[in-house]
Amino acid sequence: MSRRSRHHAGAPTEPDMPIVPMLDMSFQLLSFFILTFRPLPSEAQLALALPKETGGAAAVPTMNMDAEEEDVIIQVFAADNGNVVSIKAASKSGDVALGSDTSALFKYLQDKAAAARGGDATKKAPKLKFEIGERLNYQFVIKLLDEGRRAGYDRISPTLLTAGGGGAKK
């Protein structure tokens, strides 16, 4: 009783919460997450417009068949090791060999887009179709699509090179 009265009479006691162990644990957690944290490189997308499936693989337009007249068709032949053997631009007026380097392809695509626009910058570039050998390395496929975009083409569709393609034969 006397204790209680003395307790009431004295100054209020502050609760003592030990923060230091909690801080220690937080630092340990923090160091764990900092050490295991690996930020991913910034990923982005290349959009494709695939033809609709109407009648199976045969419906995919191939060179000079049912493609529109102004479509730009590029054939890419692949070696067994996945590298490019040759790049060819196919058109009704005749095929144009573009070597195996993408710089000539880029120039050709730029010229074709400029010719199709005819000085009208608001006009869309024609459709660009890549016919690609099946063994071509995917890194190079992306490089081709990238060159197409850089040259100003919005509508790009890659298809498998079916007949006569170096990569298609085993």
Partner: peptide, 9 residues
């Protein structure tokens, strides 16, 4: 038909 190929920028 709307497909996007992911790559590193």
């Amino acid at each position: 038909n709307n497909i996007q190929l992911r790559a590193i920028k």
